[in-house]
C-alpha cells in the first residue's frame, strides 16, 4: 500500500473508535505526523498498526489509556525515537520541492500584482523591472526566512498537541503570526536597495515562468511519492 491509501484507510477506520479513544489517538497521530525527521511510509504503517490494535482492544472493552498509557506524549516520543529516520536524499528532495513551490508562488504573485496595478494605475507598465543583484539577494534571504516561518508553525503545532489551548487565543496567535510573516517579507522586499544590472521582463513571462516552476514542483512531488511506494 502507498502512503495515500494508508492515510485514507486510517481516516475510514478512525470513525470506528469511540469518542474518547478517537481523541486520544488523533492527538498522537498529529504529533507523530508532524515530526518531520522520520520516514513517512514507516510512520503511516506504524500509525495504522497502532489504530488496528486500539480497535481490537476497544472490542474487548479497553480504552486508549489502558493500551498506550496515561501519557500519550511520552508514548508518541518513544515511537518516534524508534521510527527510521528520513534518509538525506528524501530530505533534500523535499527541501528542493519546497524551494520550487516558494519561487513559483512568489513569481506568480508578483506577476499578478504587477498586472493588477497596470490596469488600475495606468502609469505602471506591463514590463517588470528587475535589478539582478537585489533580486538574487532577496531570493537568497526569503527562502531561509520562509523555511524558518514554516518550521516555527510546525514547532508550535507539535508543542500544542497535548495541551488545552483556548481556541480564541489561538486564533489571534495565528492571525498575528500571519501578519508578522507578511510584514517580514514586505520589509525584505522594500528595504533591500536596487543594485546590479537592470532587466526588463514582461509581466506575462514572469507569470509563465512561475507556472512552469509550479508544474516542475508538482512533477517533483509525484516523483518523491512514487519513490516511497
Amino acid at each position: 500500500m502507498n502512503i495515500h491509501e494508508l492515510v485514507e484507510l486510517n481516516n475510514q477506520k478512525r470513525k470506528l473508535l469511540t469518542e474518547e479513544n478517537r481523541k486520544y489517538y488523533e492527538k498522537m497521530l498529529v504529533y507523530i505526523r508532524l515530526s518531520y525527521r522520520i520516514s513517512d511510509l514507516e510512520t503511516e504503517e506504524t500509525l495504522s498498526e497502532l489504530l488496528d490494535h486500539l480497535l481490537d482492544a476497544q472490542e474487548e472493552g479497553k480504552n486508549a489509556e489502558e493500551v498506550f498509557g496515561k501519557n500519550p506524549k511520552k508514548y508518541a516520543d518513544e515511537i518516534i525515537g524508534e521510527l527510521p529516520k528520513m534518509v538525506t536524499k528524501e530530505r533534500t528532495s523535499l527541501i528542493g520541492m519546497g524551494i520550487l513551490f516558494f519561487l513559483a508562488v512568489s513569481m506568480i504573485l508578483s506577476g499578478i500584482i504587477a498586472l493588477v496595478s497596470h490596469y488600475y494605475f495606468t502609469e505602471a507598465g506591463l514590463m517588470k523591472e528587475f535589478y539582478l543583484g537585489s533580486a538574487l539577494l532577496k531570493t537568497a534571504i526569503s527562502i531561509p526566512v520562509a523555511f524558518f516561518l514554516l518550521y516555527s508553525i510546525i514547532f508550535y503545532l507539535r508543542w500544542s498537541c497535548f495541551k488545552k489551548i483556548n481556541k480564541i487565543a489561538e486564533f489571534f496567535v495565528f492571525w498575528f503570526y500571519g501578519a508578522f510573516s507578511v510584514g517580514l517579507f514586505v520589509i525584505i522586499y522594500l528595504f533591500i536597495p536596487s543594485f546590479g544590472p537592470k532587466l526588463e521582463i514582461s509581466v506575462f513571462i514572469v507569470i509563465m515562468s512561475g507556472v512552469i516552476l509550479f508544474i516542475l514542483g508538482t512533477l517533483f512531488k509525484r516523483k518523491i511519492e512514487k519513490g516511497k511506494r
Binding site: 497502532l50 490494535h53 482492544a57 479497553k62 489502558e66 493500551v67 498506550f68 498509557g69 515511537i79
Partner: peptide, 8 residues
C-alpha cells in the same frame, strides 16, 4: 506489560 509498549 502495557500493551502499547510492544510497538517501540
Amino acid at each position: 506489560v502495557s500493551e502499547g509498549s510492544i510497538y517501540p
